[in-house]
């Protein structure tokens, strides 16, 4: 029951079907990776699960600990314990990172209650230190003028502060140099444990050297075509996606 379960999901953008019957289950405590070539629908999957209004789910279901989240607004899904780390985090001019995070945490409090400012900053600074983020990031506008690496660190900081049950990390390695990649990966690894399930979406195997998955899924044309242990990622790296595409038999389910 404690899992993020995606059942035979079909997703359209406009008239075009992008996800075409995808099934996947991430039990709490595990890290799964989805690898796939560009255009396979990886990012669509994360946005659709998050509840982005541009993505229409035509059939299938997404269950968070056994409860369907498809009828929920994006904010409600988040409060149920879902977290998306964005490939391209948005810049929000004029809204400080600290105010943004406080608003996010306050949204999880019961009506009329707010988190204590002192506790908040203590917690925030502790998590920022882990990600080697300077204090000035609290007063800077959300992601505005941040470098690629700073934006990704900021995503992981939010994840650490919000303590989700399930996190989907969409191309977290894109735009990162090796040092930033190590810091971000360490940030994710520090959060691994029995209380969280992670789905790491990536095009390259490189990230999986640092965030070592329990299971690897290969996605092609909106479906999972292969499941395997972490070594599968290495095989893909070596042989390329064409090898999978060529050998593509019937779609499999996880």
């Amino acid at each position: 029951m404690s899992s993020l379960k995606i059942q035979d999901l079909h997703v359209r953008i406009g008239e075009k079907e992008i996800i075409r019957g995808l099934t996947l289950e991430i039990p709490k405590g595990e890290v799964h990776a989805i690898m796939g070539p560009n255009g396979s629908g990886k990012s669509t999957l994360s946005k659709a699960i998050g509840g982005h209004p541009d993505y229409t789910i035509t059939s299938g279901d997404v269950l968070l600990d056994g409860v369907s989240i498809l009828g929920m607004e994006p904010d409600e899904r988040a409060r149920q314990g879902l977290f998306l780390a964005f490939q391209y985090p948005m810049e929000i001019p004029g809204v400080s990172n600290a105010n943004f995070l406080r608003a996010a945490l306050n949204s999880r409090q019961s009506e009329g209650e707010e988190i204590e400012a002192v506790d908040f900053y203590e917690h925030l600074y502790e998590e920022m230190d882990k990600l080697e983020m300077r204090r000035e990031f609290t007063s800077r506008a959300v992601n505005e003028g941040f470098s690629g690496g700073e934006k990704k660190r900021n995503e992981i900081l939010q994840m650490a502060m919000l303590k989700p049950k399930y996190a989907i990390l969409d191309e977290t390695d894109s735009g990162l140099d090796i040092d930033a990649l190590k810091i971000v990966s360490a940030g994710v690894n520090a959060q691994r444990g029995p209380n969280i399930g992670c789905l790491v979406i990536t095009h390259y195997q490189r990230l999986l050297d640092y965030i070592v998955p329990d299971v690897v899924h290969v996605m092609v044309d909106g479906r999972i075509v292969r499941n395997g242990p972490k070594e599968l990622a290495l095989e893909l790296e070596e042989k390329g996606y064409d090898f999978i595409k060529d050998a593509l038999a019937e779609p499999v389910s996880a």
Binding site: G51, I92, V95, A104
Partner: peptide, 30 residues
């Protein structure tokens, strides 16, 4: 208000109304 900004804030648990207010405040902050 840009839909992508709204979605980003909502994906952190912030209600649509609260997210709109944050964005407007940010807009005026300059």
């Amino acid at each position: 208000i840009e839909q992508e900004e709204l979605f980003y804030l909502m994906s952190r648990g912030i209600s649509k109304r609260a997210a709109q207010k944050l964005i407007v405040n940010g807009f005026l902050q300059e």
